[in-house]
Amino acid sequence: MPVPSPSHHVRASDARRVRDLLRIAVAGRARTGDLLPGEDELMVGHGVPRSAVRAALGLLREEGLLRPGPTAHRIVARPHYPGRTAVTGTGTRVPRWLERTGIAAPDVLADWLGVPVGTPCLRTECVSETAGGGAVLETHYLATEAAALLLAVPGTGPFDRQLADAGLRPARAGTRSGPVPADPDSAALLGVAAGAPLLGAERTLTGDDGRVLAVSVLRADPAGSVPVARDGAAAAQPDSSARTASSESASAGVLSGR
């Protein structure tokens, strides 16, 4: 059974944000058997209430990645990334922008962006059309300098076009991807059934100078081309599985697992 949507006391985007960043931490830095930080530490680190932390942990439990313990959640599996498929919105329809929010970068996001913990960052979220007629929920993060340039251009077109209009032209793109189950809120935004297999991807865009311009978490229903995870363990894989983080990724602390 999919985890129910967070209560009205929890912003769904907050729960998704914490879930995504914890998922990246589990994939890149942790090992099976490790304990995640406790709820209090996660609340402070991510700047969200306990209810949002609990909702995020519930989504990761549903993926089969965590097991609750007496003091904290234990990691029982790690996300499985069998490919490097790009799933950005490239359709003809104008994206449906959901929000632009300023946040202080928690440790995982700071490592990924290559900035100090607590650096002000811009988080944007939209639903776009894929080239194949599917839909993708895009969440993008930019640090202060890049965010200021992006905010100076009209915020109506696709994210990658906005980057180009802002003069932020990446020299390299590092992507890793794999099947993930649709949580109820993402499912509602994408128009699919809760628990349906989506293609999940994490992307890093790097400039000529080696600095990270933007990082993204993407959840896509690319017109039925998503592989179905076997044995009912959508997106979960034991720690011994080979990881396929792109060697082009500039977020070495997270995407390469160092």
Rank of each mutant, 00 (worst) to 15 (best):
G253D: 12
V53N: 03
V153K: 01
L150F: 08
V44E: 13
L42R: 00
L113W: 04
G64T: 07
S128Y: 05
G45K: 07
L35V: 00
E99W: 10
R29D: 12
D34W: 07
D221E: 14
V10P: 07
S51H: 05
A250I: 09
V192I: 15
Q162H: 06
A194G: 11
P68H: 05
V18K: 04
R172G: 01
H46R: 13
P179D: 00
G134T: 12
G157D: 12
D111R: 13
R16Y: 09
D221T: 00
A193T: 14
P37F: 02
A235F: 09
I24L: 15
R161M: 15
C121V: 13
V180A: 07
P179K: 02
H80I: 08
R16D: 10
T90M: 11
G33V: 12
G210K: 07
G174C: 06
I24Y: 11
P120R: 00
G91V: 09
V108A: 14
G195Y: 04
G191I: 02
V192L: 14
V48A: 03
A245M: 10
P4N: 01
T130E: 05
G155C: 05
P82Y: 03
L142W: 04
R29T: 15
L65P: 05
A52R: 01
G45C: 02
D231E: 14
A245V: 06
D185F: 10
A56D: 09
S246T: 07
G64W: 05
L149T: 06
D160N: 11
A135Y: 06
V44T: 14
E125S: 15
D221H: 01
A15Y: 03
P227D: 07
E62G: 10
S247G: 15
V127E: 11
T85Q: 03
R93F: 05
R258Q: 08
L137P: 02
I103P: 04
A166N: 10
G114Q: 09
Y81I: 11
V48N: 06
F159I: 02
A188R: 07
R61L: 09
G91A: 05
V115F: 01
R19A: 07
P238K: 00
A171R: 13
V87M: 00
G89N: 03
T71M: 13
S5A: 15
A86H: 13
V94M: 13
S256P: 06
E202F: 11
R258K: 03
V180E: 09
D221G: 05
D221A: 05
A235K: 04
G257Q: 09
E62T: 08
S186P: 11
A233N: 11
T71P: 02
A235V: 04
P238C: 08
I75N: 10
T32C: 15
L35G: 02
C121P: 09
S177N: 01
I103V: 14
L35S: 04
A15D: 04
